[in-house]
Nucleic acid binder design. Structure first.
Ligand SMILES: [Zn+2]
Ligand SMILES: [Zn+2]
Ligand SMILES: [Zn+2]
Ligand SMILES: [Zn+2]
Lengths: 151, 151
DNA sequence: AGGTTATTGATAATGATTGTCAAATAGAGC
DNA sequence: GCTCTATTTGACAATCATTATCAATAACCT
């Protein structure tokens, strides 16, 4: 009952090509820029679906936007994300897992899930930013995302 | 240059009275329900301000809503939140802090911040829910928030 | 090929959050 | 207490992401 449409393939491929986290809006824009006539609603639907079946990870950006990423392993893991270019490093952390479990149990909480993400500037973006900063006094736009829309 | 208005006090007090995390919308509704004529925009502004000066903590609920809470300590800490009643336990975790720092550094990321939250059902809500569940077959609404609007 | 039915997409609707700007007012100074 | 002025407020409009509609399209099965 699940059909294979070029739209679904398109979203899947495009997401995989991005590498890092990206918003539905940004992915749609990227697809359109690439010549695809795919609809926005379809991108939203497909991303939600991919996330539901475990083919993509999703998280809320600090400013409340939902971001998606094609993740290699189906294993539970977390992410270290560049808030400028979206570049992402997958991190598995046994220590955090056991900590989360223990804390929840100690406080009588059940059915506990955790949100663990690290946002920063990757080495490359940090370099570029410092270069620009040197040149133009102290201008900085910490929250500004680049053209990819990634965070 | 920062003025003390009854609106600001109202939001501060109300937030403290709630105890757990709550959305701006829900807090505004609560204030109105309590007879206050405070405006919605003011609640949004005040909460954002309290968060900015460190008198409140804020986080994104799993479904993208911004939640606020009056926190006791100004120290950096994390939260264990009941996704049904909003009841919250503050947790300080040296292990998580050092882990986050180390992971970021190891991958060349700078200016790193982390998001670490645990969502579950507190003992009380779990009890009530199981009672209801026993009575009415297997109905459950995992994402449903109660009248307080808390998550 | 033809029929059934999930999927698509243009668009409207929703819902949270922010912007606008005239009116209200806290706080300083008299 | 009274005035003055910059800050704050609040009704409302505007924005922005996301979801719902629903007729048209196109997979997939026979
Ligand atoms: Zn980067
Ligand atoms: Zn984990
Ligand atoms: Zn609870
Ligand atoms: Zn921390």
């Amino acid at each position: 009952m699940k059909r294979n449409t070029w739209q679904r393939e398109s979203v899947r491929d495009s997401l995989a090509g991005i590498g890092g986290f990206i918003s539905a809006q940004a992915l749609h824009a990227a697809l359109r820029a690439g010549g695809s006539p795919i609809g926005l609603a379809t991108v939203y639907r497909t991303l939600a679906d991919l996330a539901a079946i475990g083919e993509a990870d999703s998280l809320q950006s600090p400013d409340g936007e939902a971001l998606y990423r094609a993740c290699s392993s189906g294993e539970h893991h977390h992410h270290l994300i560049c808030r400028h270019c979206g570049r992402t490093v997958e991190i598995g952390a046994a220590e955090v897992e056991s900590w989360a479990q223990r804390v929840a149990a100690e406080n009588g909480f059940v059915d506990a899930a955790h949100v663990v993400d690290i946002f920063g500037w990757c080495a490359q973006c940090a370099d570029e930013a410092s270069g620009v900063e040197d040149a133009s006094s102290a201008r900085r736009a910490p929250g500004a995302a680049d053209a990819t829309g990634a965070v």
